[in-house]
Amino acid sequence: MLEISGLHAWYDESHVLHGMDFTVQEGEVVTLLGRNGAGKSTTLKSIMGLIPKRAGSIRFRGQELIAARPDRIGRQGIGFCPEERGIFASLSVQENLLLPPVVAPGGLTIAEIHALFPNLHERARSPGTKLSGGEQQMLAIARILRTGAKLLLLDEPTEGLAPVIVQQIGHMIEAIKRRGFTILLVEQNFRFVSKLADRHYLVEQGKIVDMIPAHALASRMDDLHNRLGV
């Protein structure tokens, strides 16, 4: 579904991605693991076209996106949930939820989203940023579920959240995976992703250095803990 090859990216003059190569198959949950500054978030932003200077190849369902504008990439059916969540303060919860345009059929209906996230229904009229951190994270994910995007890029959805909320988000990701969504997940929370993902890519200094399928994870624990510094 998504094939990244030889992806380079630069912030101004600093070279952040040094030839990323990885793939995501339809229906998979795939994580990018790595230390801070390894280039995981930059990879997601590069896929969305949000890093102006990038080179290499990003193919989504066979379409080359490396030179495309962010709105064209979004329209292809890739939903993005940024690290800072990107909830709009001047929009109500409901407006935040309805903001991303529908890009393809097959997204969740508002009723389904409210069933999955009852809080968003109760607080529909509150300003988006008056929600708790966990609720904002739910909203940030919920709003890309209704657009019909089938590939979701989630950047550190558990960052700064209480364990009970992290657990809820885990259940939610399982639920949307069962609905056939494909998810590329950036995470620092190793325990969280170890139960969710089909495969893990290890990112170091802007490159993929290893790929670990879920079944091999247990035997690699010690090694990974060392490399991730967790």
Partner: peptide
């Protein structure tokens, strides 16, 4: 209003 706050994200949504 959303684009006033964060134009890059709004564009990534396909706008």
């Amino acid at each position: 209003r959303a684009a006033t706050e964060n134009p890059a994200l709004v564009q990534a949504f396909g706008v």
